[in-house]
Design a protein around this nucleic acid. Structure first.
Length: 103
DNA sequence: GTTGTGACGGGTC
DNA sequence: CGACCCGCCACAA
């Protein structure tokens, strides 16, 4: 069980209609660096299995999915999140309402 | 074993 | 509010 595996396992537990942050996941794994979580998600071999689109930055912004925010590429993911009931304004998610962690 | 870098966070300037 | 710098952990070269 590698660090990345634990990240994937944790992401799978994210309920639909909720989002979490890199920091929250990192903290749940016992570390302080959210970058490590990003590394794992970025290289996730479980693309559709792990809902990486539900993992966002702590400030509510989407962050990135395939590398960086590239124009309308994000729009597709935003639409998917909205389908789960998550409201997004200008690429920002309301963590107070949809944050899957103790706010 | 060392170095560099990244889907990041927080604090300062 | 935006730009900059430092810290942070894991992984690839």
């Amino acid at each position: 069980m590698t660090f990345a595996e634990m990240v994937y396992a944790l992401c799978r537990t994210i309920p639909a209609g909720k989002v979490t942050t890199y920091k929250a996941l990192a903290r749940a794994l016992g570390i302080s660096s959210s970058q490590a979580v990003g590394q794992a998600l970025k290289r996730n071999p479980y693309a559709p299995l792990v809902p990486c689109h539900r993992v966002i930055k702590s400030d509510g912004s989407i962050g990135g999915f395939k590398g960086k925010i590239v124009g309308t590429e994000i729009e597709e993911k935003v639409r998917l999140l909205e389908r789960e009931g998550i409201t997004i304004s200008q690429g920002m998610v309301d963590l107070v309402k949809f944050g899957w962690f103790e706010i």
